[in-house]
Amino acid sequence: MTTETEVRTPAFLSKETDRKVCFICSKGNLDMAYPALIMANGAVGEGIETHLFFTFWGLDMINRKTMNDLKFTLLGNTAMHPPRHFGVSMHQALGGLPGMTRMATRMLRKQIAAQGVPPVPEFLDLLVESGAKLWACKMSVDMMGLTMDDLHPGVSGIINVAEFLELSDEAQIVFV
């Protein structure tokens, strides 16, 4: 015979969260696409209401024509330390040589994949599956002559700044 045991909520669940976080993605470079995707993934996995708003070059992350083809360049990137320094060390000015961006992009893609992190379009699928919402910026969409059909199928809608501000009311906003 079993006795009814008392429910003891563990400490990690004892505080109900009504936390909400909005990421503004404004960059279309491969290396600048990932920070928000990874943080948003972490947030939604913690039960936090999570939104991503794609504006300006950030729209490249959800544009079907460009989302598979984001690039990484050494040019102007001061995190490219002088040779033999540490980490990825290659003079940034070498980025101007033909084929360099292609090579650097391929290298970064490989490093990201080695961490078990999916390519951008698949990462967006993952976020939507997890319950995060994706929004496109109206002005950027108009400026680039796009419609919903041009965007990743997981995008919930095209919204203007006022709508974004309503959406992010009382949210923590992270600009990338």
């Binding site: 990690f12 669940l13 996995g45 039960g47 993952l126 599956e129 997890s130 319950g131």
Partner: peptide
């Protein structure tokens, strides 16, 4: 799928499944 994990262990799937 990730979606199923969120259904099986709502809101905090990573922590709930480990718990």
């Amino acid at each position: 799928t990730t979606k199923q994990l969120f259904e099986l262990f709502p809101k905090k799937p990573g922590k709930k499944m480990a718990y």
